[in-house]
Nucleic acid binder design. Sequence first.
DNA 1: CTGTTAGCGCATTCAC
DNA 2: GTGAATGCGCTAACAG
Lengths: 335, 335
Amino acid sequence: MPAVSRPTSKDVAQEAGVSQSTVSLVLGGKWSGRVSPATARNVRSAAERLGYRPNQAARNLRLGTTRTVLLMVPTLSAPFFGPVYTGAARVAARHGFGVVVSTWPDDAAGPADSPFGSDEAIDGVLASSMAAGALAEFRGTPAVMLDSGPDDRPGDRVPTVDFGVADGMRAIAGHLAELGHRRFGHVAAAVDQWTFHARAEALAAAVAGLPGGALTRARCAIDVTSARDAAARLLTGPARPTALVCDDDLIAAGAYKAARALGLDVPADLSVTGFDDVLLATALEPELTTVRLPAEELGAQGMTALLDLLAGHRPAPRVLPGELVVRDSTAPPRG
Amino acid sequence: MPAVSRPTSKDVAQEAGVSQSTVSLVLGGKWSGRVSPATARNVRSAAERLGYRPNQAARNLRLGTTRTVLLMVPTLSAPFFGPVYTGAARVAARHGFGVVVSTWPDDAAGPADSPFGSDEAIDGVLASSMAAGALAEFRGTPAVMLDSGPDDRPGDRVPTVDFGVADGMRAIAGHLAELGHRRFGHVAAAVDQWTFHARAEALAAAVAGLPGGALTRARCAIDVTSARDAAARLLTGPARPTALVCDDDLIAAGAYKAARALGLDVPADLSVTGFDDVLLATALEPELTTVRLPAEELGAQGMTALLDLLAGHRPAPRVLPGELVVRDSTAPPRG
DNA sequence: CTGTTAGCGCATTCAC
DNA sequence: GTGAATGCGCTAACAG
């Protein structure tokens, strides 16, 4: 037998000299006018004295709910998703929910592809930054999509929470245009996610709307060396851009390297912008002009929407605005 | 009623024309010589046909286990902890365990300090990077300490998994000494965690053992501006160090800034080293000489130890070696 | 106002 | 070799 088995509601009942159901009522907070205040206090103090904690498993079984939601993210290595988790967990905890994380399926390069690992022991899922068009995986499980774009399918849609990336990109283009830039290079993430498609479209539209505006583009993976190579391609091509718009702060770091390798000074010879505003943005030299995306807020709002959904409501799609943060990597073009 | 309630073991029994207990036996894998192979096959196919998934809550209740462990980390904002989680989750999944993350208590600056949020619905805890001496929080809950130093208390110790940070620091000191450096500056993290105490001691010892070796130290928070200020203090003091040893890659980024502000070239005028080898290390210019810490492996080994512990064993303390990665931020001192 | 009863889905004795 | 019965701890009807 275990050293000291935890007290049960039955023990509390005995200690307080009442019945189990009374304990349940009191501790469940539903005793308004059903149990006398004196008894309630009595029960509470007994529970306190014994250090009683309700057994979640029993609770889950009885209630048919697990009070656990699954957060799916592409990876936890990217600095962006820690805050998303934090935000989601914060509001979840406030409602007695836990959050388990899982990375996108194929990440499980392990031996057995989750034997029965991907339990159905969850009440709902928060899916972040999905590949475009990968909706519809969730048969019957309440889900909210994060940073995956609006749900354009007909019928009843999945609730969504997104960033206003298009506005963010327009802000960057506007800032650069105001400084006098006309030839833009887009160092684009070669990742099939809504957010990157949206960024590309918004930038293209903004530049197209600019008299004399020209845009070239190179794609790369989201890592420094790949980004450096892509930026170098843009910089050594014809009609060199005076500003490099990068899909991600890390990509911007690669652009810095390409610029330095070519003897170009940032921002005197070349303006560079990032996206996301992660820690890296201020670690770089010069500090990076970028768009701050409220990652933690994304997690928090997403969880709020999911909790709403679980409560039987139909949360409306939400869009979280990004904020242009001007630092030292942008300046008027030379000449 | 719900749209389609999931099949239970009872449904499977009915479908297979056997009893519930037979289903449990077969699916539980404990039917060696108790159930006929034919029946077993029959049950399996019935389960398959119905898409049966055992109800975790019921299982947990019956077994008195939750197959969930808690990973406690100081923060998820630091890029270091994502991989730790990933490693832990990987081996946990392989054993049918889930992992929930929580950040250190006081992070819950929320309204109510986890009303009943921090459930006891866990089988064990993996505590990473604790403040020194903060052991002993886990009354009765099996725990493994990660990156928190060896457990020096008498009696039965908590199993530990640590990095060989002392060796790592010695490797850095040795590398720098070999290049000809004698005056070292330590930009130290002002964080009360074992790993930083160990780094400081190891560096001090290494420099003390070096003929003509001198060491100055400045403390800072783990953020770029604080690090930059600390590094600047060291650089403007008497007998300027020729090498700055930083407790963290992010701190090294701050050191870069201080150097540039003083017109010092890295590495020609000043060598700089980091610690951890996060993404940032290669994003900087010049790329950072640092010590790679196998973060994912820490999580994996920690989970392995915890699973061992839960199985009734006494896992031995483990130490994961760090690896010196020489890049472009270190060079012989000038003159 | 409070106690008694029943059952969530499963793993496990114990009869047969 | 298999089935019937029991109870894990809890909540929600329903009595009293």
